[in-house]
Write a protein that binds this DNA or RNA. Structure first.
Lengths: 338, 338
DNA sequence: CCTAGTCTTCGAACCGGTTCGACGATCACA
DNA sequence: TGTGATCGTCGAACCGGTTCGAAGACTAGG
């Protein structure tokens, strides 16, 4: 494989001149530049990433830490990843994907060894054990998911509290007086999934304000338990005219459950979910939902991360950006029947 | 950040001695080894990946080339990726994930720049434009997906022809005389998705052998077209008692379609799919199916790839391994009603 | 007592880039 | 005609590891 030394020799110049001709960091005469370019072409030269990383202490690689936790919905994670990968490439970075269960150790490894210039953490929990490692690392990091303590980090997430309020307002505004809120499994909350708590608490509070009787339930995440649980809920709350779903698996399972009972939304039940449009299309879900915008979050996180990488001296304060949720109307809600 | 020079100084030895103490490639006295270890611990030393890559010409990173093509089912891809990532880490490798639409160029970039020690290609098409690049690269590669020309590469895939035969045999064996086979969209075949062709041709041939009247149809991949198409099929082939699905989106959409018509499997229709068990659980699909074992394929590919990386002189012949499909019985087939 | 061999350790070179300081040539200006 | 910039290029050092050859100390054997 050709090195820059070979290129220099072929062009009849020194290594440093070849380097400057390629980088443009010093002025080099046009003739020399074109001779160097010709040599590059002829030899098929490509700079060695390791050598360049050593010399510049930049790898042009971003770490992407994903965790595929039991009880969380894997396909949803993919959308964050794709957003991240997309915009990273646009900005000239490659992605080192790390899926190890022990995220803290993996993070320590890739930052200590200088494999990456920065890191994006997905699936951040309230009290995520990766955060102390990230704060101690010399590379900057960006989070997708809001932890309890955000100091020293750029954080991006959906405003789940606002999402909870929106769902409640939407149903209350249509005149509903009783509804059921199906959350992620309790598991997820206990493990530190703060987004579940934030949506729940805000929904409960807003329900009180609007005079909506709201039954809060933790759902399941795997079939057939998801379906059975939904059936059970329909039995237990026969008065409820609204259903709020903060649980992908439950949303995906709902059509069959309603079908089996001969129920239709919005005729018999108004339904509002919280999932991405992409998800809705994949599962052909006919329910209005609050868009969770995973790819947008991933993109924002990378953009901010790269800004920090490329201007390390910047005193720009750390951001905690909570995206304003939007309700996508798919016509699954209406005023309750008299 | 501490370098090996700092470690050496702290331990009172030369850099080379420190290196040998850590790698164990030459015998070093136990006292010196423990002094070096202590220094490593005290300084929090971790070797710089770039420097090590430069010196050893090994990056301990594998490239993973994924393509998220329109009309192909994205969540299915995730499972291949997870299998690959898992076993790579077990073997000490990290994963550089590349999702660029122009896979050939991306592959050239990461191999030319020596960012990876080897490459796994997912989603390989009949006449994949990444293959010439891979064959010309100095690093070995492994494919998941069978192209037309396998020379010089290790290839892993499900035996789709056998899968087609198995589906047909299963229904024919139960006494069915007429069935519909729903394939991936024609798009996928035209683009070079050989697995569609292989399954189809084998199914058609076996249907002739077994005297089964088989209607071959290309399905859709997005809602609501998928569902509409299934409805249309039920109308067009009222005599068919069997349904074969080689199309994830169609499988996912089928429950609602059957429900809406008041049909049940296997009472009214025998159904056999071709998707992974993981997929079946996620979508709570009650249909028997041929397991496509994506994570197993990913794991096999990485194991073989790493074997090649670690023994580059090996004359071991290239393998083309087609996994024997297995039918997972979920009770959705029965003898046709008289 | 001398020599050959073993065990540890060290110094130097190398991997392939980037970058700094210096140097010679050219040019404008006094 | 001498002086000071400016331009283009080169050599050398450096990034942080690994590895080879050699050298010194010590041991064993003749």
């Amino acid at each position: 494989m050709a090195t820059i030394g070979d290129v220099a020799k072929a062009a009849g110049v020194s290594r440093s001149t070849a380097s400057y001709a390629l980088s443009g960091k010093r002025s080099i005469s046009p003739e020399v530049v074109s001779k160097v370019m010709a040599a590059v072409e002829a030899l098929g030269y490509a700079p060695n990433a390791g050598a360049r990383a050593l010399a510049t202490s930049q790898t042009m690689v971003l770490g992407l830490l994903v965790q595929f936790l039991q009880d969380e919905f894997a396909p949803a994670m993919l959308q964050y990843m794709l957003g991240v990968a997309d915009v990273a490439r646009e900005l000239g970075y490659d992605i080192l994907m790390v899926t190890e269960p022990d995220g803290a150790r993996a993070l320590k490894r890739i930052t200590d060894q200088r494999m990456v210039d920065g890191v994006v953490l997905l699936n951040v929990a309230d009290d995520d054990d990766r955060l102390p490692v990230l704060r101690a690392a010399p590379q900057p990091g960006a989070l997708v998911g809001l932890p309890l303590d955000c100091t020293g980090l750029d954080v991006f997430d959906l405003d789940f509290a606002e999402a909870g309020r929106m769902m409640v307002d939407h149903l209350a505004g249509l005149g509903h007086r009783e509804a059921v809120l199906v959350l992620q499994p309790e598991h997820v909350l206990v493990r530190g999934g703060g987004y579940v708590r934030r949506l729940r608490d805000a929904a409960v509070e807003q329900a009180a304000v609007r005079g909506l009787l709201l039954h809060v339930e933790h759902g399941e995440s795997q079939q057939p338990a998801v379906g059975a649980h939904l059936v059970d809920l329909l039995d237990r709350y026969p008065q409820a005219t609204g259903l709020l779903l903060h649980n992908e698996a439950a949303a995906a399972a709902l059509p069959s459950v309603l079908n089996a009972r001969g129920l239709q939304a919005p005729r018999d039940l108004s339904v509002v979910g919280r999932y991405s449009d992409e998800f809705a299309r994949t599962f052909s879900l006919p329910y209005s939902s609050i868009e969770s915008a995973p790819d947008r979050l991933g993109r924002l996180a990378v953009r901010q991360l790269v800004r920090r990488i490329e201007d390390p001296t910047s005193q720009e304060p750390y951001v905690v950006r909570l995206l304003q949720p939007e309700l996508v109307d798919r016509g699954s809600t209406a005023a309750p029947q008299a």
